[in-house]
Design a protein around this nucleic acid. Sequence first.
DNA 1: GGTTCCGTAAACACGC
DNA 2: AGCGTGTTTACGGAAC
Length: 564
Amino acid sequence: MMQESGTETKSNGSAIQNGSSGGNHLLECGSLREGRSNGEAPAVDVGAADLAHVQQQQALQVARQLLLQQQQQQQVSGLKSPKRNDKQPALQVPVSVAMMTPQVITPQQMQQILQQQVLSPQQLQVLLQQQQALMLQQQQLQEFYKKQQEQLQLQLLQQQHAGKQPKEQQQVATQQLAFQQQLLQMQQLQQQHLLSLQRQGLLTIQPGQPALPLQPLAQGMIPAELQQLWKEVTSAHTAEETTGNNHSSLDLTTTCVSSSAPSKTSLIMNPHASTNGQLSVHTPKRESLSHEEHSHSHPLYGHGVCKWPGCEAVCEDFQSFLKHLNSEHALDDRSTAQCRVQMQVVQQLELQLAKDKERLQAMMTHLHVKSTEPKAAPQPLNLVSSVTLSKSASEASPQSLPHTPTTPTAPITPVTQGPSVITTTSMHTVGPIRRRYSDKYNVPISSADIAQNQEFYKNAEVRPPFTYASLIRQAILESPEKQLTLNEIYNWFTRMFAYFRRNAATWKGAIRTNLSLHKCFIRVEDEFGSFWTVDDEEFKRGRHIQRGRPRKYCPDENFDELVA
DNA sequence: GGTTCCGTAAACACGC
DNA sequence: AGCGTGTTTACGGAAC
């Protein structure tokens, strides 16, 4: 029990640590670092949200300036054709993709949303107002961007026909890219703000609200042609990257923008971040939308059926599926509710998975000593190093080589070992357990083996995965005099294992049988009675049970041997 | 399918 | 006679 609980504590600790780290990640990304437990942090939260608000306004201003500059440049440049006009769409499409990339909630965010705490109505109101302001900004930016895109498109068309100097065009492109970066930064800030809102319970408390922040973003879903364009563009940019222009793709994986250092934008230009024409934004929504490449792996489409939870509408091809998806599963209250339900399902599954992972980790940790220690046959197995078993433990060696001649170093895997240790209830019902691993794998048990699970076996009625012979040997070797009477052996069993507090007649008889059958157990008589010792060399020798050839009981001989 | 290991039950003996 | 201890045998399940 101690082992198990200890492991659980450790696992829980790591889990908590992981969770907190994830939370810290979000906290670092977002502007809100709230201490929600006291339930009275609206001022702090609002202040942090305001900070994000200011940052977004700054970004918006920068974007506007860039846009103005670009417009001026366009006016100056007039109709000039570029040498490499094929590059122009490249600078539009990626940002278009990024601009319209829907917000996708990661599983971590799901958990946080689901585990959120309730805010006060005042908090909600403030946050909602902020959110609405942000959405207005977002729409404003989108309008700017659309206009800019239209102008650029027009310009490009004109340039393609008239021919232009590439220098100015590159400047335009650079300006546009910078502008797009600002847009992305804006979007990321908004996303962080959304996450903050979600974490504060806004989305759950106000079921209608998620549609508010998500709506404009989801409306800008990536058209297929944009994907195709982006694909072509990135492939064209790959060649250009060697010239030092690394503005070809936007690495959105690091969308965390520090509130304290907004200049350290996360818009890291990473020319290698994209593969196969895909932005390195690992959002399920994006992947689902890039159906040109993944039309057969859409998570919501399979076997001609829409896999939206509860839908199962038949879609003959992927295009019809997309139509169906956009029409029947648009972003509305119903879809949002279904998504929330699915989030809960995922959360439950993740929790279950986390528990099972913890369990597996505990099993692995528990078995780590024996499974990872070198067990080369010629090497003494010094995994015990027990204080009370200096001799026997340090000299532990294969004890039944004929049984496992080819696997002297076979590790004890959880597969073979786990059930007998973990399944407390099943252990009691499956009946006698044969092949205790201590014998099977030629590893005598030790005080360390038992000590690791001492509390567990003391309290849980779990049959220890050791043979009677191993346990008897252990009991004897643990004693100060390396000798025990039969009754003391009984007491050791009952003291160390809850399992042996029942059915005494059975296991006591087994002990007596084993003491008699095993050559390694030597009965010694003195003036006070008789006691049992263990010949550990004999124990480690291999077959220590003589069945086919019953040994002749000869206490005098044994005594002489012991004395000698 | 045979062998081996192991647990279990039982019979038996011996001494107190 | 009853009990504890010790020995031996038989049987069956599981693993090899």
